[in-house]
Every structure is written in structure tokens, then in C-alpha cells.
Design a protein around this nucleic acid. Structure first.
Length: 343
DNA sequence: ACCCTCTCCCCTTGGGTCAG
DNA sequence: CTGACCCAAGGGGAGAGGGT
């Protein structure tokens, strides 16, 4: 494996050739210890919308008692997965596994802009452990790097350092939405999506969500008419509110199509509040719950039971009596994991 | 032409299973 | 124990179909 460390370009070819035509499952997994390369095999699907990762990529077990005092650089995740040899194959329904062949093998290292997000994700996980909330961790907490369940069942738990409550066994994993982006961009070389954050260094001192909020803050309280003039938006499309926020960030296309939203799988919802405080647009959830959420008391609301742990971005406009619409705020939100004992 | 509703299907989540 | 694979439930979006 000495050669692995040197000839970067050749590795893919060498490994690809030696692996091509073999069953993904039947070979012992080599660990290129000396070169610091982790071998990962990951399936994808061809869908009408392009290549899609079939599963999240599980990296390494998350030991709550051992990880929290480390730095990102010494964490089990980074030590093992800083550099991965990603081998992918197409999964086709109904085709026996034996017939799947590895069609791509790429030595993958995280791009800087992704790394800043992942670093933040890692910190979010560690902060939860330090707060004695390892049992409340959910995949919705983070953007790219998540802690996915990894046990026989939810009763398969392990200890955590700052709480006597046992927490579900979990492993570091890269979300499937993020894997899809990796496959499309770095493995198959599709055109990249538009990025919201052009300068990776911007996230060194702040989180994506805080950066986003700060970027949008100067426009709070402005009317749609004023925003359209100021931002050069000329449409009256139904999704005007979304387009306005996109313009605030300097995004030309749809917010939901940007790299960050795609990779993190963030759901975008615009909300228009009527002059009387009610919400007109029909949503998947009852209106009353939105009102509760607006008052910041949503933590006790019944929404807990209803929503999957997905991250949301709410774009909130307030209508006034004269028919004008004012930008009020944006809010990132996701459901923290339920404490099972409360159910 | 537009809207509403209903259904179907795809996708993600949160697991489970199994072999080495 | 770990890595790879499998699966059910449920939400949400797309599209069909009907009403105005």
C-alpha cells in the first residue's frame, strides 16, 4: 500500500481495475493504515433526477465518553475519514448483488467549504454530549455530518459522560443528501450547484445559520415593494418571498437548489402572517401550531409528535392592513429528539 | 384559466439484519 | 463489534381529475 500515498491519480485506476467485476461484499476490507486512507463502498441509484446516493455513509462509532474532550482533528471521525477511498456502484432493484460492479473509485478529501460545515456539525454533537443530552441527539441536528442510530434497537444504549441517562448507540455518518452531492459533484463530475457561501473561511468563526441570519438582518422590516426595488427583483411570482430572500444572499436561482440546502436537506417554507395574526396559506401542519411557534414557546407544542427530524428554514413575512407585506425574519428550526420517557 | 383535493409514489428516517 | 445491506412508516411533492 505504499504506492497509495504517492501517485494520487493512479490509485483510482489501480484499485478500480483490481476491484472491477468483484462483488462489493466478498472481499475483506483493506485498511490502508500507513497512508491514512479509509476504504468505503457506497451504492447509488440512477433516478429521473440524476444520480442519488442510496444510503448514508456510516463512518465510525461515536463513543460519547471518549469523543467530547477531543478536538475535531483528533476525533474518531476525522482520524478515520479525513481521506477516504470512495468506491461506488449502481444499485438496481431486482438485480442480485453479485452482478453489481464497482464503476468508480475516487480518493476523496473534503472540500474546504464542506469541512467548515462538518466542523460545525461535529461541534454541535459534542455540545450536546457536554450538556448531558446525548440521548436527545437526532440526525436533524446537523447539516452534513450526522449521528445515525447504530444498535440492535433503540434499547441498545451506552453510557454518556454528563448524564446518567443511557443514550442510543450512534455512529458518525454522512447524510445521504450530502452523499448525493458528493457523488454528483466529485465522483461523476456534474455541474456544481450554486453556493450560498462563496468564501469558505466565513464559517470559521460562525455557524451557517448565524451567518445566514446576519446576512438577512439588514432587510428586516422592509416592505416587499421596497425590497424589490432595492434588490432588483422584478417578478410577482408566487414564490416572491423566497426570491427576495435569495436576492438578499446574492443567490440567483432557487434557494432550495443551492449546495448548502441540497447537502443538508433543508426544507424551505415561507409564511405570510395576516394583519390579524393568522396564517392564510395552507400548510401541512395546523395553523395554531405556527402561532405557538412564533411566540417562541414552541418547545412545548404538539408539533413534536408530528414532524420528522428535518431541518427547516422558515421565511416569515407580515402582512399589514394596507395590503403591503413586510419581511419579518428567518428562522432555522428542527425538532430536538424526543425524550422517550415523556411520551 | 385557475384552484382545490385526492391519490400515488418517491424519499428520508430510524431503525433492523447478517456475515465476517 | 463493525461494515454493508435491508426495510417499514410516514411525509411531501407531482400529477390527475373535478369544480368554479
Amino acid at each position: 500500500t505504499g504506492r497509495i500515498a504517492t501517485g494520487k491519480g493512479a490509485i483510482g485506476t489501480v484499485v478500480e481495475e483490481s476491484w472491477f467485476g468483484y462483488k462489493p461484499n466478498s472481499n475483506p476490507a483493506p485498511d490502508f493504515e500507513e497512508a491514512g486512507v479509509e476504504l468505503k463502498v457506497t451504492p447509488y441509484r440512477q433516478t429521473p433526477r440524476g444520480i442519488q446516493a442510496k444510503e448514508r455513509l456510516v463512518c465510525d462509532m461515536l463513543n460519547y465518553d471518549e469523543e467530547y474532550y477531543k478536538t475535531f482533528e483528533t476525533s474518531a471521525f476525522w482520524v478515520k475519514c479525513a481521506c477516504m477511498l470512495l468506491m461506488s456502484y449502481e444499485h438496481r432493484d431486482g438485480v442480485p448483488k453479485v452482478d453489481f460492479t464497482i464503476d468508480k473509485a475516487v480518493l476523496f478529501q473534503f472540500p474546504d467549504e464542506d469541512l467548515e460545515v462538518i466542523r460545525n456539525d461535529w461541534k454541535i454533537l459534542m455540545d450536546k454530549i457536554k450538556a448531558g443530552q446525548a440521548h436527545l441527539i437526532s440526525e436533524g441536528d446537523t447539516m452534513y455530518l450526522a449521528a445515525c442510530p447504530k444498535g440492535r434497537n433503540s434499547q441498545d444504549t451506552r453510557s454518556q459522560p454528563f448524564s446518567p441517562i443511557p443514550a442510543m448507540k450512534r455512529a458518525y455518518s454522512l447524510k445521504s443528501s450530502y452523499m448525493t452531492q458528493i457523488l454528483r459533484r466529485y465522483i461523476f463530475g456534474d455541474e456544481p450547484c450554486e453556493k450560498i457561501i462563496k468564501d469558505p473561511a466565513a464559517l470559521r468563526t460562525t455557524s451557517f445559520e448565524d451567518w445566514f441570519s446576519a446576512k438577512v438582518r439588514p432587510y428586516v422590516g422592509m416592505s416587499r415593494t421596497e425590497l424589490k426595488a432595492r434588490l432588483g427583483v422584478e417578478t410577482n411570482a408566487k414564490n416572491l418571498n423566497e426570491l427576495l430572500v435569495a436576492a438578499m444572499l446574492g443567490v440567483k436561482g432557487h434557494l432550495s437548489n443551492t449546495e448548502e440546502f441540497q447537502k443538508a436537506g433543508i426544507q424551505l417554507k415561507t409564511i405570510a402572517i395576516e394583519p390579524n395574526g393568522s396564517i392564510k396559506e395552507s400548510m401541512s401542519f395546523p395553523v395554531m401550531n405556527f402561532c405557538a411557534m412564533m411566540n417562541e414557546t414552541w418547545e412545548e407544542s404538539a408539533l413534536y409528535d408530528l414532524l420528522a427530524p428535518t431541518k427547516f428554514l422558515f421565511i416569515i413575512f407580515q402582512k399589514s392592513k394596507d395590503g403591503e407585506c413586510y419581511f419579518q425574519r428567518v428562522k432555522f428550526w428542527n425538532i430536538p429528539a424526543e425524550d422517550l420517557e415523556e411520551v
